[in-house]
Amino acid sequence: MARLPRLTLPGFPHHIIQRGNNRQAVFSCAADHQMLLRLLDESARKFGVALHAYVLMDNHFHLLATPSTADGLPQMMQAAGRRYVRYFNDSQGRSGTLWEGRYRATVIEAERYLLACMAYIDLNPVRAGLVAEARDYPWSSHGHYAGLRVDSLLTPHPLVWALGNTPFAREAAYASLVRAGITLEQQELLTRSALSGWALGEGDFLAELQKRTERRVTKNQAGRPTTTPKEDFPAA
């Protein structure tokens, strides 16, 4: 069976997951994290992608981003990913693949899932037991939105601006949202949709989305069932 192409649509937020091959670590030190962020920043600007959120874990990373063109997101991921592999292999004296195949991604309905996805991304290190609170983890976008530091690679989504009329109000509202957490259902939906490639949203949103692409945006209800890729790392 032919591999289903990734769903990539300009103007919509995409939740992206890239994992290390065979669960291997893709970062060995702070310089590695800084390098990938720099490469993502350069590639995002070059290919017209707005990066809204990120978290870099030991063996995988998540992004939330909105491309301005149909090719912007894959171009960004390919450019940053290839350059990072060359850097990492040279620094570690290794060769061969680093990533577990192609990145996974799908479109999410902003009004319903964007802020939940940002909290989901921020809470990865907490779920993994690396830190007690999202604010304690240095390699995520949480610090920017909670007012702890400025991250120049980030472009806040309009829904973040709508959290308050002043920077302090927005930061307080966002930090409160993350502390409240997300439901297990939201966590599972966000994980499953990104890994499977099916769009995440309500019926009207999905119907409108389908008009914009020939690629199916949801799994067929009839016929032979397809298999959803299994989540196999602890902090998705």
Rank of each mutant, 00 (worst) to 15 (best):
G181P: 04
H33D: 06
L73G: 06
F205C: 06
A134R: 00
Y113I: 05
K219Y: 08
Q78D: 02
E231L: 08
P74W: 15
R224M: 11
L64G: 01
L36F: 12
H15T: 04
F88V: 00
A235M: 03
Q75E: 13
A119W: 10
T191I: 03
M118E: 10
D71E: 13
Y87W: 06
E202K: 15
C29M: 08
P234V: 03
K46A: 09
T226R: 14
G93Q: 15
P229R: 09
V131G: 08
C117R: 02
L184G: 03
F12R: 14
F205N: 11
Y137C: 12
L209N: 15
I182K: 10
C117A: 13
Q92L: 05
R127Y: 13
A53P: 00
C29G: 10
A110I: 09
W99H: 09
D136G: 02
A2D: 14
T97G: 05
R170W: 03
D41T: 11
L200M: 01
N89D: 05
N220H: 14
Q18Y: 06
G93S: 11
P156K: 13
T228H: 04
K46R: 12
P125K: 10
Q186R: 06
D122N: 04
V49Y: 10
R127L: 08
S140P: 01
W139H: 07
V178Q: 01
A50W: 15
N22M: 01
D232S: 08
K46Y: 11
D204K: 15
L4A: 10
G147I: 00
L114T: 01
K230C: 09
A44D: 05
A70D: 14
R38M: 08
V107D: 05
N220F: 05
R83I: 09
A134T: 02
M118P: 05
S152W: 04
L195F: 03
A173V: 09
K219W: 10
W99C: 03
S28T: 06
A119C: 13
P156F: 12
E202L: 07
R127I: 07
V107T: 14
A30F: 13
R104K: 14
P138N: 08
T69C: 07
H52W: 08
V85S: 07
L56V: 03
A172V: 09
H157T: 00
K211R: 12
R224L: 13
E111M: 01
L159P: 05
A25H: 12
K219T: 14
A146I: 14
L115R: 04
A199L: 06
L184D: 15
T183H: 09
F205P: 10
L40V: 01
E231D: 09
N220G: 15
G201H: 03
V26H: 05
T213L: 03
L195G: 04
S91I: 01
E214L: 09
L39D: 00
R216V: 07
Y137M: 14
S68T: 14
D90I: 01
Q221L: 12
Y120S: 07
S176E: 15
V131C: 14
A173S: 12
A70K: 11
G20I: 03
K219L: 14
Q78M: 08
T228G: 00
P138H: 09
S196L: 04
L130D: 04
R94T: 13
